[in-house]
Design a protein around this nucleic acid. Structure first.
Lengths: 271, 271
DNA sequence: AGAAGGACCAGTGGTCCGTA
DNA sequence: AGAAGGACCAGTGGTCCGTA
């Protein structure tokens, strides 16, 4: 297509270039610029740089340097093409990949998805350090402030809707990596899309919650890398529904509560 | 004054009446209706009931029962006079009282102030119970939701600006009751007003923070009744400033850091 | 002047839906 | 159709300032 030329140039083009934009040491983790993915596999060193996109100033705003909006043209030096008439850029969509597998074509894999969560954590840690140093209140979760900081730090490929969308998938990865890996392999083999893999991540999490007295907040909070993420509404609701089911089933059977299905015995000493 | 007649009627009048509005057992703590103050001292059993005040409907709203606004007249049965033309009611202002002392006249004492914080805690506990039961996210702090719940439960004398205003006073009361009591006695004796007593509560808290490595959040969180309150901005700022002073002084003296003034030694082993 | 609190405001958590 | 994310929205934390 004609109007995707710049897209191809800035993304596919970049994806084949050797790393040359960023200091390797710095990139690895500190500023979250995606160093991990540039360092490793060939196909991976790509698209999280450049995604400039004009700020779309809605009213008179002042940026951190005290400049007013409506400039930015001419600022886009170097690769990827200047801002004028540049197409809206997006991240490549995710596909279901096995652990360690590199997504081919204009796709991103699930290792990369999970890596974004680690990057967010690093951004949070930085925000916390700054807040403590200034004596300001210190976020314990990945908040809007952290997303803003990530963007400001150049990680424009990180955004709130995306991260919130896949939180529970990352949760499963944290809490039961084997189960997570098995699920990925199964869904890849079946040729399922990302959406159905994502849906399938809920159930094993509900089972984990069951084993912890249905307290999904406690499950999240007990894990150091997961505790910084808000429990997704839908996961919370599923746990609640399943608890009610289990309680009802237990009452009906005058038996225990299982953590593998939605009824039968196991917990509560089988009165 | 003529237009304070209803005020006097509903407040002073009520303050002398025997309890007759509320179930005693229920009032004591469960619904937060001020049972403690009605049960105890004579002058205390007063003004936290009635403060009806028409809702001042700003647009078409629907309440919990599905009714639209602009009724409420005729609902005000019993004491205090009907809603029509009723003056805006406020709580009596606080005065500095000693521990155990009852405020006289149209005043409230500091024991009553601190009791309001305990009531808020009870309302929070109820909100938490409801949230857990419903599988909704569960507040850990006294949030807007809790204030709304308190109001809905009839505790119209509890409001956010007031509670936030005196949080640090309550904090001192929790963390060092002896120091808090001494301060109250001193300020009462000197005839200071509530504002200056309130100001004076900051300093001992800053010293406590100092003894805990200037982490005022940790100090709040370590105390079960205090942990549910947000650290007030000004207290946080004072701790930060004083830490900076202490660090600067320590650097200058190549000595330790004190917790009793704003310089000199004590912490850090006096190199 | 001193104080209580309605009401406002900037920035939040949450996610929909116009976009690609 | 499947998916990424700008942008909106209801309700938050915070507290000012018109009120008594």
């Amino acid at each position: 297509g004609t109007h995707h030329a710049l897209d191809a140039l800035s993304q596919e083009g970049l994806s084949e270039e050797p790393v040359q934009q960023q200091d390797q040491n710095d990139a690895a983790g500190n500023n979250g610029g995606g160093g991990y993915w540039e360092a490793g596999q060939a196909k991976m060193k790509k698209q999280q740089q450049r995604r400039r996109k004009k700020p779309m100033v809605t009213s008179v705003e002042t940026d951190d340097d005290g400049n007013e909006g409506e400039d930015d043209d001419g600022m886009d030096t170097g690769n990827g093409g200047g801002g004028l008439g540049m197409e809206r850029q997006r991240e490549h969509p995710f596909i279901v990949t096995e652990p360690g597998e590199v997504a081919r074509g204009k796709k991103n894999g699930l290792d990369y998805l999970f890596h974004l969560y680690e990057q967010c954590r690093e951004f949070l840690l930085q925000v916390q350090t700054i807040a403590k140093d200034r004596g300001e209140k210190c976020p314990t979760k990945v908040t809007n402030q952290v997303f803003r900081y990530a963007k400001k730090s150049g990680a424009s490929y990180i955004n709130k809707p995306k991260m919130r969308h896949y939180v529970h998938c990352y949760a499963l990865h944290c809490l039961d990596e084997d189960a997570s890996n098995a699920l990925r392999r199964a869904f890849k083999e079946r040729g399922e899309n990302v959406g159905s893999w994502r849906q399938a991540c809920y159930k094993p999490l509900v089972n984990i919650a069951c084993r912890h007295g249905w307290d999904i907040d406690a499950v999240f909070n007990a894990h150091p890398r997961l505790s910084i993420w808000y429990v997704p509404t839908k996961l919370r609701q599923l746990c609640h529904l399943e608890r009610n089911n289990a309680v009802a089933a237990a009452a009906a059977l005058v038996g225990g509560i299982s953590c593998t299905g939605s009824s039968a015995s196991g917990r509560g000493g089988g009165g």
